[in-house]
Amino acid sequence: MTALILALVAGAVVGLALGGLGGGGSVLAVPALIYLLHFSPVAATTASLLIVTATSLTALVTHTRAGNVRWKQGAAFAAAGLIPAALAGAAAARLPQGVLTAAFAVLAGVVAVTMLRPRPAAESEEAARPARPGPAAVTGAGLGGVTGLLGVGGGFLVVPALVNVLGFRMRAAIGTSLLVIAVNSLAALTARGDSFGGLDWAVVAPFTAAAVLGAWDGKRLAAKVSGTVLQRAFAVALLAVAVFMLVDAVM
């Protein structure tokens, strides 16, 4: 199987996960790039940021038309993560490959376990609560750092943060998270300018295109299959990937 076919298949899977679950699919991009397409961890996280940016901006257009994006609050939340995202993005290129892989594996494992747990009522379509500026700034900065360091969009972290910290309703949280993800990813990419030269664009370009198209199909899939079933299947697969990556990093 050629690298092009692998890139298209992997990109489609990532897009389906993003479209079907509203976040988390980008966590599959890094291990796919490392183990299927033989990217280094630094190159994989940089390429993942490109993929995340493209898919987030595409989905942001749709959610904007649906009125699900709170631009003012989302921009303020994203602004808190700009500097941490840029600093973490620059630091990622200087970390040992094994450390970067292990850190990503731990994050993926945490995400998988979180997704397997029942969702509390606080994450449902409930009444919005007043925003708390201090915790919002701290949370935004932390999420920006995670995005910059590990090359993940962090929708699985941003959405709960917007609900629990800023008091967003779920639909607004999902739509606004795309703005936060896109801004943080772009900031991290700016700090990783030196890494672009080592990317295999013949692989990254089709991977990104397939992810964008797959995200549209993921939305249709979500309408036909139970969201709980999709989430649990994704979480089990992600947990297996996390264990494999952690073992590979420490061996």
Rank of each mutant, 00 (worst) to 15 (best):
S177D: 10
G153L: 04
L186E: 10
V159H: 04
S177A: 13
G175I: 03
D217G: 15
T176V: 11
T208G: 06
V158L: 11
L199W: 13
G153T: 05
L162M: 14
K224E: 13
A210D: 09
A209D: 03
L178P: 03
L213H: 05
N164G: 06
T190Y: 14
A187I: 00
G197Y: 00
V152R: 02
L213I: 14
G227M: 07
D217W: 14
I174G: 03
D194M: 00
A191L: 02
S177I: 10
V204C: 04
A209G: 03
R220D: 13
V163W: 05
L186P: 05
L149M: 06
G214E: 13
L157E: 00
V165F: 15
A202P: 02
I174A: 11
V225E: 06
K224T: 15
I174M: 11
L186T: 09
W216T: 08
A191K: 05
V180T: 14
T228C: 00
P160A: 02
S177P: 06
A191D: 03
T228W: 11
F196G: 10
A211I: 02
G214S: 10
F168G: 06
V203D: 04
L221H: 04
F207I: 01
T208N: 10
N164W: 15
F168V: 03
L157P: 09
S177M: 08
A211K: 07
F207R: 02
A202L: 11
D194H: 11
L189I: 07
V152F: 12
L213N: 02
L149C: 00
S177H: 14
A215T: 13
A182G: 05
R192G: 04
V158G: 10
G198T: 03
G218D: 14
P206C: 01
A222F: 11
A182F: 06
G151A: 05
S185F: 07
M170Y: 15
S195M: 02
V163K: 12
D194C: 00
I181L: 10
S177V: 04
W201P: 08
P160Q: 09
D194E: 14
A161P: 09
L199I: 03
V158N: 14
A209N: 06
G218N: 11
A205D: 01
G148V: 04
F207S: 06
G153Q: 09
V225C: 09
G175C: 08
G167P: 10
V229G: 04
V163T: 06
L179H: 07
V225N: 10
S177W: 08
D200A: 15
V165N: 09
V180M: 15
N184Y: 15
D200V: 09
S177C: 08
A210E: 08
W201S: 01
W216M: 05
V158H: 15
T190P: 01
L149Q: 03
